[in-house]
Design a protein around this nucleic acid. Sequence first.
DNA 1: GACCAGGCACATC
DNA 2: GATGTGCATGGT
Length: 221
Amino acid sequence: MISEELTNIYQLLLDRFGPQHWWPGQTTFEIITGAILTQNTNWTNVEKAIKNLKAADCLTPEKLHRLDPNRLAELIKPAGYFNIKAKRLKNFLSWLFENYDGILDNLDNVDTDTLRTELLAIKGIGPETADSILLYALNREIFVIDAYTARVACRHHLIDPPADYHQLQDLFQSNLPQDIKLFNEYHALLVRAGKQFCRPKAGCSGCPLENLPHSTDIECL
DNA sequence: GACCAGGCACATC
DNA sequence: GATGTGCATGGT
């Protein structure tokens, strides 16, 4: 049964690594900003960019919305792709101000499906970023899929590759209790384990899932 | 110096 | 619909 395997994997990861305390960030907006900045980027680089934004006292929707785009790009430079990410942050803010008066609390009245559709319509926000925002910033019952999640699921035969984003998301959402805290911790643990044991050329030796059935030569996503 | 990182949009076939 | 490419910094 898939649900039992998923629960087993979760417990093994939690036992080994403990709670991951995701998402690092003190405010809803900081989490959203981090979700955009971390696209294909190491988190330590994102932290530098966020630190710059805080030091410039710019980490609120109003201030970032008003900030000069070139200045914004300058501040987020350490996160890489700074020109395109500056645009993406601006795109998000334009949407927020045009539709919700720039107030994140106003999103509370919107149902999750509608919100997800609207987020995906913003240029620069794809499935993973939208779902990270929904789960970690807005506390919605959405399971985030990323490259690590895909690798673990495929290597452990939970799903047949090639599996697309929606198939993977359905795997977790349909076979786990609809629990925000569980979704939060599970994804964070998958990333934690994936960084160490499920990178393209990393070995499985020492992985808490090492004794479960798996194939090391399967890639996914 | 090569490879990777908590993606996404766009061009081309 | 699948595949390839640009975007860019910083750590290992």
